[in-house]
């Protein structure tokens, strides 16, 4: 809580554009959150002024971003890697995770609660290629999984999701011979959206490509 005015320190980022309190110079320095105090004090001191415009610069996702930053900091101090796994429904997140956890027993610690140092926590996000792109969870890495039968148009159709991925997994790769999936087109389009992203094709059914995925997981442990 802000010692000067009692506002909530965990709240949203509100920046002062104009007006404000002349004696509030210590606001930003004193409690490490970047908000001005114009609204609260305007309300207290000038509440009767009718029909006025109150200027804000309020980032709508500020609260979410604050929580994410707290998570990220906590995980970094603990030496835990948080992986955010995203895909559309039915792309195979659960199948891949179950197989990964089975194959890596003893080799890599996956933690559910109270993660010890050197472990990995995976958030199996909701099946959706739109909404999870908006929300930072404090993860260290973002993995987007898209399966072969979904079609090769996914990066172009959901650029927000693919733009922020660190790794893209093309799952159900065992179905490539049977469906009309232009791998070349997919790779080119993915690079147009995110030139730096790494792409792996794998199949949790046949085991194709899994070693590369496991090696990558190991490399992410702090």
């Amino acid at each position: 809580m802000c010692a000067t005015c009692g506002c909530s320190a965990g709240g949203a980022v509100v920046q002062l554009i104009s007006g404000g309190e002349p004696d509030h110079a210590d606001a930003g320095r004193g409690h490490g959150h970047d908000h001005g105090h114009d609204l609260g004090h305007d309300r207290d001191h000038e509440a009767s002024e009718a029909g006025r415009t109150v200027l804000l610069q309020h980032k709508v996702l500020a609260k979410n971003d604050d929580i994410a930053a707290g998570n990220r900091d906590w995980l970094r101090r603990r030496g835990v890697c948080l992986l955010n796994l995203m895909s559309s429904p039915g792309a195979g997140k659960t199948t891949l995770l179950e197989r990964t956890a089975r194959d890596l027993v003893g080799a890599l610690a996956f933690a559910v609660i109270d993660p010890p140092a050197g472990s990995m926590v995976v958030i199996e996000n909701v099946g959706n290629l739109v909404c999870p792109a908006m929300f930072d969870l404090g993860e260290a890495v973002r993995v987007v999984l898209a399966s072969v039968p979904e079609g090769a148009d996914k990066p172009v159709k959901y650029p927000h999701m693919f733009r922020q991925a660190d790794l893209v997994l093309l799952s159900k790769a065992d179905l490539l011979p049977y469906v009309n999936f232009d791998l070349n087109r997919y790779t080119i389009d993915l690079r147009r959206v995110n030139p730096a992203v790494r792409l792996m094709r794998l199949s949790a059914v046949t085991g194709e490509g899994l070693q590369e995925w496991y090696d990558w997981l190991h490399s992410r442990i702090p």
């Binding site: 109150v54 610069q57 709508v60 996702l61």
Partner: peptide
């Protein structure tokens, strides 16, 4: 990329 509340009008 911003999503912001710029201002509000108060009655």
């Amino acid at each position: 990329q911003d999503l912001k509340i710029i201002s509000v009008q108060v009655a």
